[in-house]
């Protein structure tokens, strides 16, 4: 295994972390602010989209996924794939049920 020799030797900058933090706090403010506006059914979609953007920032920057091996990124897709498909299948029951 060639890769075994690599150590994680990416030094990460302080500046980018502070920027990411600023973005995260701004998004938190945004999500709290738009919660006051009634988008109807869309509210949950807006809230989830903002949460996904925030998680993406934490994953790629704070958790260093950006500089990590491809394998790790593939792992994330496995987990997400399972969650999304399972949720869809679960709702194939609950969206159409008559109980």
């Amino acid at each position: 295994m060639e890769e075994a020799k690599e150590h994680s030797k990416h030094a990460h900058g302080y500046g980018i972390y502070v920027l990411v933090w600023l973005a995260l706090v701004t998004l938190t403010g945004l999500t709290a602010a738009v919660a006051g506006i009634n988008f109807g059914k869309l509210s949950i979609v807006v809230a989830i989209i903002i949460a996904v953007i925030k998680s993406y920032l934490v994953l790629t920057e704070f958790m260093h996924l950006k500089t990590e091996q491809r394998t790790f990124k593939a792992f994330i897709f496995v987990a997400l794939f399972f969650i999304i498909i399972s949720l869809a299948l679960l709702f194939s029951d609950y969206s159409f049920y008559v109980r």
């Binding site: 938190t28 999500t31 709290a32 919660a35 006051g36 506006i37 009634n38 988008f39 509210s43 949950i44 809230a47 989830i48 903002i50 949460a51 925030k54 998680s55 934490v58 994953l59 704070f62 958790m63």
Partner: peptide, 23 residues
């Protein structure tokens, strides 16, 4: 340890709108 802490953060990122911000 950091990875673990950030995951705890990510989970809260979802819990917050789902419990506090329902219109």
């Amino acid at each position: 340890a950091g990875l673990y802490w950030h995951l705890v953060d990510i989970i809260w990122i979802f819990l917050f709108p789902l419990f506090y911000l329902i219109t």
